[in-house]
Design a binder for these strands. Structure first.
Lengths: 183, 183
DNA sequence: GCGTTCACTCTACAGGCGTTGACCGTATTG
DNA sequence: CAATACGGTCAACGCCTGTAGAGTGAACGC
């Protein structure tokens, strides 16, 4: 790869990292192109040149891998759900946080969030039997959303004080109660 | 009461109603004083005169009654929680929606939301025994938050298609699994 | 009835925003 | 080595925002 191409790729990635961080912390509206540019040590006009618009930058910044992987039985499902709370005690990817931060106030983020959640709901539903599988899947998904929002975005003391393990221990029976349609 | 005082009270209430509606739909940042004024058929400067600033208007608009009432045994608690999803199949007050809509992106709304949630957590914890009562209460509260956000703010089809009764039926055992420390 | 209060409007300002187009210098290409 | 392409900067525009201050006319208190 030519020197110029590398340079460009690095700069672009630096801008994206700054954007993700600021979008995740402040949301779409309060994040300015100027602030992103400054954090990336770059001229604001360059951000526009690379991503076309603020919305384009946001879209590029929140592009994210699908959160859940496979589908198995309900026990496996519940385990995947509690794991998704923070992948192995680490942090959620900042692109996900950025999307969640803005999903209530930025229309495009809301569209993206609905798409991601619908995909997850459909996937969770595959591990559930019974005719209200979709509703149960939706409740499981929004439950995880609520806990994640409370923990990562609102940073409620009561949740931050707890270990991932304790949260998982308490959550598990509740999730099972929803995922297990009696047998 | 004098005619002028009535007139003022009515105008103020009209402004507040418009503000609540717009804040609930658009959030703090996308709601402009000009839009609120127009919706209330009033000059923008009057809004400033009455509420001091946009933030003052927001604070007045989201002032809200405490969501939960008493504390009893766990069954009673669970019932109160599922009822709180939408008071008797009606809508949540718009002031609550306005606060929730902005809680992830507007710092003042976040402070308010944390205060409201912490109060609710403390109250829920009173109905729970055991040394992790506070954590269980926090999880119960954020679970309800997640379902409410998914239903009222993100308007997920999978939840909107369901009746309040079905949601309550599926949620109840899950909430009980968290609220019931074994006996 | 007359001076005052007060609900309400008009006009304007200052600042920050997204966005644009011209420009510069260096790596690339033939 | 000359012509070009391209990463990157600079300065500026137009718009919308929250906000301020002066002004107006009708209800009020005496």
């Amino acid at each position: 790869m030519t020197e110029r191409a590398q340079r460009r790729r690095r700069t672009e990635e630096r801008i994206l990292a700054s954007a993700r961080s600021l979008f995740a912390e402040l949301g779409f509206e309060r994040t300015t192109i100027r602030a992103v540019a400054k954090a990336a040590a770059v001229d604001p006009a360059l951000v526009m040149q690379y991503f076309g618009s603020k919305q384009g930058l946001f879209s590029a910044a929140v592009r994210v891998a699908p959160p859940l992987a496979a589908h198995g039985d309900t026990d496996e499902l519940v385990e995947q759900l509690v794991d998704s709370l923070g992948l192995k005690m680490g942090e959620l990817p900042q692109s996900s946080l950025a999307m969640m931060r803005s999903m209530l106030t930025h229309p495009e983020a809301a569209v993206e969030a609905r798409a991601v959640l619908s995909r997850q709901i459909a996937q969770v539903a595959e591990s559930i039997t019974g005719d209200d599988a979709r509703l149960r899947a939706a409740l499981l998904t929004t439950i995880m959303l609520g806990v994640t929002v409370g923990h990562q975005l609102l940073e409620l003391d009561e949740l931050r004080a707890a270990s991932q393990k304790d949260i998982a221990r308490i959550l598990r029976p509740a999730l099972r109660a929803i995922a297990d349609t009696e047998e």
